[in-house]
Simulated scan of single mutants.
Amino acid sequence: MTQNPRTQALSDAGVSIWLDDLSRERISSGNLQELIDTVNVVGVTTNPSIFQAAISGRSDYDADIARLAGEGADVEGVVEVLTTDDVRTAADLFSDVYASSKGFDGRVSIEVDPRLAHETEKTVEQAKRLHEIVGRENVMIKIPATLEGLPAITAVIAEGISVNVTLIFSVARYQQVIEAYLAGLELAAQAGKDLSTIHSVASFFVSRVDSEIDKRLDAIGGDAAALKGKAGVANAVAAFGEYLAAFGGERFAALKGQGANPQRALWASTGVKNPEYSDTLYVDNLVADPSVNTMPEKTLQAVADHSAPAAALTAESAEQAEQVLAEIAAAGVDLADVFAVLETEGVSKFEVAWNELLETVQTSVDAARA
């Protein structure tokens, strides 16, 4: 089938398009395959909110819930089976993409229990468990970039497991994520692991940054309002400058000589929340080679319809972005506080969604046993 020319142009520019959504219905209906065939979708990301929306109130999962309930599974066991089954099926759907891209794409991500975001050892334990249960090379385990998540990232990479680092909001934290990845690769090399099989992406959240900073700029008032809608892109572009420096440097060069892959920047939270902004804002202005842009379907459809990409990001782009962030700080926005708030809220939102999912499935399990 012919690919959409706009999404093809992004792909040609080095941007891998991953869908930020997954459900059993999307797989069984053929919709996911259609997106692969027509709009250059080469991967999928999931999170607790996505699974909560996919499973709650859907009949697709009733038979499995009833079967598992009959076998005596508790609610956490039921949810684990439902989510890992969907990820495994999607991973199989992307097997050709995975092979043709030599492991860079064809990836399906599944996140560790968000309630473990501040527990290093339990995060490592569950990451290894999820990797084993899904049982597919092209699965990526999502670990949040909390302070406690950083050593977990190193440990899981050292085991040879590919990781999607999520909930990154600041350039400073992104630098720590890069360090965690490189340290993990070095440990993997010492243990004799094949570095060429280890992949990682660093998920840098975009729209949530604008939402929080725009609110603060409104509160400041005056000339500060002229900076609204600029922080999210500038923050991400500045992060890409860190990517270029780290993965063009000597430390990674030594690892690359042993087969290591760079940890690509991934632009997450790319659905535009302010209707006054272009609905392709966080795609058109974040064209980077290489990078991943994970899009909700609404954003993907907008891109396919009317995307107008800007020039590719460079080290010079990053310097200009840092100046924009400096202007926002000078206007009175406490950026460190913004990023701390966003991380706390990000973890909390995923915890809430996960607990809601557990409650919904528990109701179905109880009904099946009644």
Rank of each mutant, 00 (worst) to 15 (best):
L266H: 05
V341C: 01
V108C: 04
Y181Q: 02
I157F: 02
T154A: 12
D86Y: 11
D86A: 14
D12R: 13
L227V: 07
T146Y: 01
Y282G: 04
D279L: 11
S307G: 13
Q362G: 08
N47S: 09
A225G: 02
G229L: 09
L266T: 06
D105V: 12
S109M: 06
V333E: 06
S278D: 11
I50D: 02
A265G: 11
R129M: 10
A246L: 09
G77A: 07
L300G: 04
G221R: 15
L195A: 11
T120Q: 14
A152P: 00
G149R: 09
L130D: 01
G30A: 14
G149D: 03
E351C: 09
V361Q: 10
L266Y: 08
A117M: 12
I17Q: 10
E276I: 14
V78I: 15
I17M: 14
T360Y: 14
A318H: 06
Q175Y: 01
V352F: 07
A336T: 13
V171D: 01
V177M: 08
E137A: 15
P275C: 11
L167S: 10
E343R: 13
V341L: 06
V352S: 10
S170V: 08
S364Y: 09
P290V: 04
V324W: 09
I178M: 06
G271K: 06
V139R: 04
S109P: 00
D74N: 15
L244T: 07
V209Y: 05
T7Y: 06
V44N: 01
L32R: 10
Q362K: 14
Q320W: 03
A54T: 10
A152V: 10
P114K: 13
P114L: 13
S364N: 12
S101V: 10
A315V: 14
D64W: 02
K349S: 14
I65T: 10
L286I: 03
I50L: 07
I110Q: 04
A53W: 02
E322Y: 06
R88A: 15
A321P: 00
G257I: 11
V112R: 11
Q8H: 08
V209P: 00
N4D: 13
G160C: 07
G14H: 05
L217D: 03
S317G: 04
F252Q: 05
S95T: 12
T299N: 05
L185G: 01
A326I: 03
I27T: 09
S364G: 04
A329H: 06
K230R: 15
P309A: 08
T299D: 04
S59W: 07
L32S: 03
V365C: 02
V44L: 11
K230W: 07
S28N: 14
P309T: 02
R136G: 04
R136E: 07
F339V: 08
V156H: 02
D305I: 01
S211M: 15
A329F: 04
G72E: 10
G135F: 11
E322K: 15
V163M: 09
G77D: 06
K142E: 07
G57S: 12
H199T: 13
V108E: 02
Q8P: 00
L116C: 08
F204E: 02
K142W: 03
W18T: 05
R208K: 13
A231D: 09
H131W: 13
E80F: 13
Q190A: 15
A318P: 00
Q176C: 03
P262R: 10
K298G: 11
E148T: 06
S56W: 06
